[in-house]
Design a protein around this nucleic acid. Structure first.
Lengths: 201, 201
DNA sequence: CCCTCGACTACACACGCGTGTAGTAACCTA
DNA sequence: TAGGTTACTACACGCGTGTGTAGTCGAGGG
């Protein structure tokens, strides 16, 4: 993000930062231009419109991310430790939630990788679609709710050390059952009852 | 949400629906007033400002939710099945992510309940704060990423049947380890290496 | 009957937004 | 050196926003 870059690149970097921070609608053209140290007209000159800028950011972030680590979409990955990679992921997920088609495509890719991963295990899942989707969404939540997590942990999760704490937590979460077998059976029975009641009505 | 309510109540209901749907900034005073079938001035008359309306919605949603089910903040709960409860939860979480203090308080309560739950188990967690925070955030993600989930499942998660599929998935997720012991040890070693490398630098 | 007060509306204001336009400086090519 | 394309800026426009203000309607109490 240093200033010896092209103006176009500076605008792109500033946009990714502010879009990730405040959301697509929350970040204004003028703020982005100011952060990039250019006029707002130049932004328009290079990217045509705010939508054009967002598209360019989507494409660039996705390319950059796959370039850095092809494992981005896999589960239990330990990358994303560097602030830069974290920012790119955070931007892309934010853009996804604000209705970007590129983001939706990324999510679909995460689902595909999820299914591939599931196939390598010998887990018996009755509803793989739901299982993989829930897992993908939960992984994304570590980025979308960054502020809440930072507040709860008392330190910004952008800090590699804090991020490592979260990775440790997810590892704990995925490496052991959280509820006992009896609890699971009990919950399953309750759920079955609910589903049956729903179908009956 | 029928129209035989007080105008004030109709405004509140409309606000919760539109705030949850489009976010706090995304929903305009005029849209809310129109949905409630009143003038935008009446909204101001009753709630003072948009911020006042949001505060009123926060408080009302939290009260209503704790009234309906005191288990709201617990883990692995099977409630939230009715569209009404789901809407209230979705609104509150949305408001939380848009910086509401009431929402932050709710999140803190979720953390407390999380720690209480953790104490009843005999799980050995090195970093309970991080573990509980990650768990809370992941649970919330089922609401924040509703659109993505609906798209992946091919049906709106507000449908009780679809919601039940997600509950089933979370039950599957929490009742068994997702990775083998060897994989866990391997990941742990990699994580330890990363942490050590971080401290060294 | 009148007076008051709360529910409710219509309308105007200031502001910030994305966008459009005109113009300037720099640089490359012939 | 002349001409044209590109990088870049300053500034104005229209629109939607939250907010402010004046006024209407109707019920309740002296």
């Amino acid at each position: 993000m240093s200033s010896d870059l092209t103006a176009r690149a500076r605008i792109r970097d500033a946009a990714i930062e502010l879009f990730a921070e405040r959301g697509i609608d929350g970040a204004t053209i003028r703020d982005i231009a100011q952060q990039a140290d250019v006029s707002s007209g130049l932004l328009r000159h290079h990217f045509g419109s705010k939508e054009g800028l967002r598209d360019a950011c989507d494409e660039w972030a996705l390319n950059e991310l796959t370039k850095i680590s092809g494992q981005f979409t896999e589960f239990n990955t330990l990358d994303g430790l560097t602030p830069r990679v974290q920012l790119l992921q955070r931007y892309l997920i934010r853009s996804t939630m604000d209705g970007s088609p590129t983001g939706a495509a990324m999510f679909d890719r995460m689902l595909i990788f999820g299914h591939q991963w599931l196939a390598t295990t010998n887990l018996k899942i009755a509803d793989p679609e739901a299982f993989v989707a829930v897992l993908a969404v939960m992984k994304m939540s570590l980025f979308t709710m960054r502020d809440l997590l930072s507040r709860a942990l008392g330190s910004d999760v952008t800090e590699p050390a804090t991020w490592a704490r979260m990775l440790q937590a997810t590892l704990d979460l995925f490496s052991q059952p959280l509820i006992t077998e009896e609890q699971a059976l009990q919950a399953q029975a309750a759920l079955d009852r609910l589903i049956a009641g729903e179908e009956a009505s």
